[in-house]
């Protein structure tokens, strides 16, 4: 019997697959779409509930990287829908793959887990076709989240650009309307009025005490509000650097300039929180795509204190 030696392992010749050792961390949980609403031409908001209540097989995996920089706060142990603002889920559709999406709903939301998804590729366009009553498959929650309780007694400045408003909404709705916080302010910038998300809710947040400043990048017909990048509104914030926590979520280009302004206002890096977007394939600190220098954003982030990003030139 002579066979040509093969240079790759013949994986298909394995005997009957058998489940030994730990369960696959890649097995997703089935979730029911309880609401699917169009927000803009590109974005839809989905509310999800688990089909059979909580998933009994859910495991909260330990953070994989020992040299983790203390940031945000550690993932909360618990079940699939027990998330923190700022955390994310891997959301998938069989045949289309999985991608990471930030939580859009607040801590302890009665309406279930909300995700706001922009259609930009194959998977997200397929997700957009999922109607109410349809299903999505999720893994998570992953990463660090915002510790809203630690912001009590402080002024909080939310600075969001573009789709960064989605995770910011989770934090804003966790904080706004609750007692114990200082002055709350939001600056939100988008490319055009058509891209504005949650403008209806913003009115409610304003009524509940949030100062909201909205800006668009370029003049547009029918727009009477501010025009310019988010930093053009920062002077209006009148920041008290000692008692303020700033949260920044936006496109990569935004961070540097916003941080420059916050530092100019006297803020310390310890009081500036950012959430950083990266490509992610596993959520488990292994696939390598989300690495910021030596740090896995899926484990040590996506929420970081700015002071924890010193020495990570790839971060911002």
């Amino acid at each position: 019997m002579t066979k040509t030696p093969q240079t790759v392992p013949a994986t298909n010749t394995a005997p009957a697959p058998q489940q030994t050792g730990p369960a696959s961390p890649y097995l997703p949980t089935e979730a029911l779409v309880t609401r699917a609403a169009k927000l803009t031409e590109k974005e839809r908001l989905f509310a999800l509930a688990l089909l059979n209540g909580q998933n009994p097989n859910h495991t909260q995996y330990p953070v994989a990287v020992e040299s983790t920089r203390p940031s945000g706060i550690a993932p909360n142990a618990g079940s699939t829908l027990n998330y923190l603002p700022g955390q994310f889920y891997m959301v998938g559709l069989p045949g289309y793959g999985e991608a990471p999406f930030s939580v859009a709903s607040p801590l302890g939301a009665s309406e279930g887990l909300e995700l706001c998804i922009r259609a930009v590729g194959n998977l997200t366009n397929a997700i957009h076709r999922v109607p109410k009553g349809g299903r999505l498959w999720i893994r998570g929650p992953f990463g660090t989240g915002f510790d809203a309780a630690s912001m009590k007694g402080r002024d909080v400045v939310f600075i969001a650009g573009g789709i960064g408003i989605v995770p910011m909404r989770s934090l804003i709705k966790t904080i706004v309307g609750n007692p114990g916080y200082g002055r709350l302010s939001l600056i939100y910038g988008t490319k055009s009025p058509d891209d504005l998300l949650f403008s209806g809710e913003m009115t409610e947040w304003s009524k509940a005490g949030l100062r909201a400043f909205v800006t668009i990048d370029k003049p547009a017909k029918g727009w009477s509000g501010n025009v310019g990048v988010v930093t053009t509104l920062m002077a209006k914030l009148d920041i008290d650097p000692v008692r303020t926590t700033a949260v920044i979520i936006g496109p990569p280009v935004m961070y540097k300039f916003v941080i420059m302004n916050l530092r100019k206002a006297g803020m310390r890096d310890e009081d500036i929180l950012v959430s950083l977007e990266r490509r992610m394939k596993c959520g488990l600190g292994k696939c390598g795509h989300c690495q910021i220098n030596g740090v896995y954003a899926c484990q040590c982030g996506p929420v970081f204190k700015l002071s924890d990003l010193h020495g990570l030139p790839e971060a911002l």
Binding site: A23, Y26, P94
Partner: peptide, 21 residues
């Protein structure tokens, strides 16, 4: 290349695959 899950796109079922010989 290795298989992590097998899924059925019609009924949405996912089965973990752990192959080892």
């Amino acid at each position: 290349r290795e298989t992590l899950l097998r899924f059925n796109m019609e009924d949405g079922s996912h089965k973990p695959v752990v192959e080892a010989a």
